[in-house]
């Protein structure tokens, strides 16, 4: 699953989106009056008693690892272990626990291993800063390389005969 939500860089755009959400709500309010009242009689019921809570559960458990599975999230796994923990999380959500409290609860029992989003601490500094260090290191190396390279290479002009031969060659290829 590919989602952008983990990026923090776009906070500003996030605000813009809230503005547009507001506009959208206005549009919805107006469009309700225009909606014809047709609805299917046999509308299927959502599986979850509380779809909003279920959505929150899925979003949270997608980033939690099922310990007994090879490499699956708690949301995706069909293992007993995952079902039990989902039930536990659901109960805690019903009891108005926040996502952070639930995560703390799980980490206290199973360790950081359950988190797909590794917490920022001393052992993960290299993990979180690694890409940045790589990027800065590579860019610096690149700049130094390009600078040094320019001073190292002198353009040796071709001799007159080489130049003519080269031109003839290029013309020949262009014709083909």
């Amino acid at each position: 699953m590919y989602k952008f939500k983990a990026i923090n860089v776009f906070v500003l755009q996030e605000r813009a989106s809230q503005f547009f959400k507001y506009i959208r709500q206005l549009v919805i309010v107006f469009s309700v009056f225009l909606l014809p009242l047709t609805s299917f009689a046999n509308e299927a019921l959502p599986v979850a008693e509380d779809p909003v809570l279920e959505k929150r559960l899925v979003e949270l458990s997608e980033n939690l690892r099922c310990l007994v599975c090879q490499n699956e999230s708690l949301a995706g796994s069909r293992a007993d272990f995952a079902i039990d923990l989902r039930r536990e999380i659901r109960e805690q959500m019903k009891a108005d626990k926040s996502d952070e409290e639930i995560i703390d609860f799980l980490v206290a029992r199973y360790g950081d291993f359950v988190l797909y989003n590794p917490p920022f601490k001393t052992t993960t500094i290299l993990l979180w800063f690694g890409p940045l260090i790589l990027f800065i290191g590579a860019t610096t190396a690149l700049i130094f390389y390009l600078r040094r390279r320019r001073t190292q290479i002198d353009d040796i002009p071709l001799s007159e005969s080489q130049r003519l031969e080269a031109e003839a060659l290029i013309r020949k290829i262009n014709k083909e």
Binding site: L67, V68, F81, D84, L85, E88, R109, Y110, G111
Partner: peptide, 12 residues
């Protein structure tokens, strides 16, 4: 119901 199991971090 496995509740105490969860408290003890039982996974296998």
């Amino acid at each position: 119901d496995g509740k105490v199991g969860i408290d003890y971090g039982v996974y296998g």
